[in-house]
Design a protein around this nucleic acid. Sequence first.
DNA 1: GTTTAGGATTGG
Length: 767
Amino acid sequence: MPVHTVKCASDLDTSVPPHFQRISISNLKLTSDCVHRSVKGEVVQKGPVVSCRQTDHLLKAVIQDKDTPSSDTSQQTSISVIFFGTLAKDFSQTVSQGDTVLLSGFTISKSPTEQTDRLHPCLLEMSSIDACVYVHSSKLFVSSGPAVVSSESRYTYVPLNELKPSRIVNVYGVVTFFKQPFPTKGTDYCSTLKITDQSNAKVSCTIFSESLEDHPKIFRIGDIIRLHRVKAQMFNGSMTLLTTLGWSTITFDGMIDSPIEPRTSSRTFHFGEDDNRAVEALRQWAASQFLANEPTVPLSSVQPRMFFDLTCQLLAKASMDTRCMLLKVWDGTKCAHPLLNVAVAPDALEGESSPSRDRENMIANVLVYDNHVEGASKLKPGMFLRLYNLHAVTQRAPEQSADCASPLCFHLHGGTSYGKGLCVLPSDSPELQPLKRMMGIHVAVAAEDEVNDATLLDVWYTPPEALCEVVNEDFYTVRTCGHALQQVSLAHVKRSTTPVVCHVRAKVKSYQPQNLYQCLKLFCPQCTTLVEVPNDEVIARVFQHALRVNQPCSEHWAVTSSVDSISMHVSCEMVLSNTHTQLLFLQGVALDEMCVISAAHSNVVPVRSDDGRMRLLDFPAPFLFSRDKRYYGCKQCSRCTFVEPEVSGVEIWDEHNVAKALGVQLMQYALLIKFELEDETGTLEALIWEDAERFFHVTAAAASACQDSQDKVQAIMDRLHPPGSSMAERPWLDLCLNAYTVEENGRTQVCYQITNTEARGNLCTPQ
DNA sequence: GTTTAGGATTGG
């Protein structure tokens, strides 16, 4: 085989005949002699095996010279290598990212991708009969029982003080400065940031991407960022990092003890125990260095002339001219200085701005200029924002006399200096909690004002006893839709022609199912089938049945290891390739054994044998166990049998690509509850379903596996409908209702669904 | 040899 593994790194150099001469990557030229020459480097990128008509198979990798100290940025130490035919397959199976390889028998050609990948102008081709790869694996194999699984990280991270020019590296860092992505003069957006780590080195990073989604989601100084495949470079005497082809990033909140949740738009990213440790260590270190994030300045602390960051909710916006947009925002606090009200025609204003809050100095008028107008125009009322480097400017309203205190207006000046910019914060950000709490208090107070306002009495009447509740109530719901709709009665909704969206205010008279575990369903996005989650008894029977007919099975594509009657199968393509070892096929176990084994593994597929062939277990058994989660396939939409899982090209296994590789249609977890709503005008049955996750602030998948999530749903239900409570004691809920017709058994029926609504406030059940 | 940018305001 033309790929040879050596045990020890030093053996690499002696693996080729002594008359072979090593050339460093930076010295390679198109005209270099390739006969009896070798090249050594670390595999920094490894692509999948691709089929191609002329040569059957090929694989592209990038290797980097780690031996030659490179202080000169003009030196190119990374080069692309193409492996052809069986060598491509052997390389794919034997070599992993991070391994060191020594290549001989290559030819040199011009790199067609030099311009796009910014790598070496040359390319190595490994196709001739003499082509040979010697590899020293960086991996440590951990063997325990039948499961040969190595769970070590596939990435190494370079401390920021050890960066060497023109090396492609992975790094972790704490953000000490950042700009929101801004358009460049080229085709991309650019994010500029500065990061540091325990080595105390400070490194500027420049991130280019055409897609805003791919830019790091940095919200504040102290956030922690992970960058993969970025290139170190000297600029103006300082080390910098620059994105290269194939770069990626994820970001984390920097606060100690906050959940370690990667912020990314990518569906497939590697994240393991090592990452948890790296984030935790950086958080601790950042706190000790006082790099940790300070809360932003609330409106109540803003002073004239200051520059500050504001976390707020958008109430309304209006375009002033092509280079200026007005945002009316609040954060639930009252400004100590009078606030300027920029008047706009009501029909030019998108969203609503309550006059009562305006009177109370709670609504800030922000004028957003120039380059920030693009981002501001995408904002919708209701969104939570962070505005960076706002300028508090005193400005006299035209009608105001000179002796009055000049009111404050806020400017987001053009340009990006000092990080000027804005971003949308996810509405479930933990850091929005204090803000939402303040807002909640004022929403309740404002509700009282509005009912007292004669002009609103004809829109809605709230019985006097409910008023006290509203003021004291610290649990409520909010609509997040931004529809500018007048609130209507349930009777009005029932009279309306479908489809229609309505805003209502109602209480929960009853709900179904009473047992909350029954509200968890499985939904097939393909055929829209909705089924109950199978209980353990049913699943255990499927496992037992498979055990009774358990026979050895062997598949040409898999390597099998057995202990007693338990067999574990791993695809040949994955068995040595560290990138893929997470997908295991387990045969001959009972359900409880499966649960024990899968508790420690991300992706375990239970299988049985059928005439010596491997088969998935029958429905309704889950096709995948992933730690404490179980995933099910749709009986109608899944292929009945799979012949061979398609494992090529998958870097990280999750329920989506496991389902795809097995030909299974993945069913989604969903929460479904039927409410009977009531107001003075009648009752109406409404489902909460498509927006249930948003309403309860949990994912259905989490609710399937985690007690905390189930408790959260229960706590919210207990606030909407306290056990043993009278109607008068239950809270009024602001709801967005969708009325639509469905056809069932030839009959059309009107259905109501609660959408765009979130439960908010204190979830402790009142005594 | 990098497409772009390479932090650093004060205004409408």
